[in-house]
């Protein structure tokens, strides 16, 4: 016997007999009795206005930091060795290329 044919026949049998969709008479009332014991549904969107309130102070702080950074770089003499210090720090962990060659 061909198993594929049998599977197809069985699936056709399942399609030919969709399940009933009736509900028991008092089912909705029973669910409502359960629902009334539940806490009210939460609205997740409630936190979004709070985030919007926080947006203005964050923007102000960002502007202050930007202005402070711009003024500091204008009035203070930049360290001429800063690039060298940065490079030494970054490459400190690497072996000396001169030694390799």
């Amino acid at each position: 016997m061909n198993a594929d044919q049998l599977v197809n026949a069985l699936l056709a049998a399942a399609r030919a007999h969709p399940p009933r969709d009736e509900a028991p008479d008092d089912f909705a009332r029973r669910i409502m009795a359960r629902v009334s014991q539940q806490p009210p549904p939460r609205i997740p969107r409630a936190w979004s206005p709070t985030l919007w309130h926080a947006a203005a102070p964050c923007l102000g702080l960002m502007l202050l930091v930007s202005v402070w950074s711009a003024l500091a770089s204008y009035y203070l003499d930049p360290d001429p060795l800063l690039d060298d210090h940065l490079e030494n720090t970054v490459f400190a962990a690497l072996p000396n290329p001169g030694e390799e060659w």
Binding site: P19, E22, M32
Partner: peptide, 16 residues
């Protein structure tokens, strides 16, 4: 909460 009962009545056949 009672409005939820109308939703139950409408969709319970599909859920069953």
């Amino acid at each position: 909460i009672d409005s939820f009962e109308s939703l139950i009545q409408k969709y319970q056949p599909r859920l069953f």
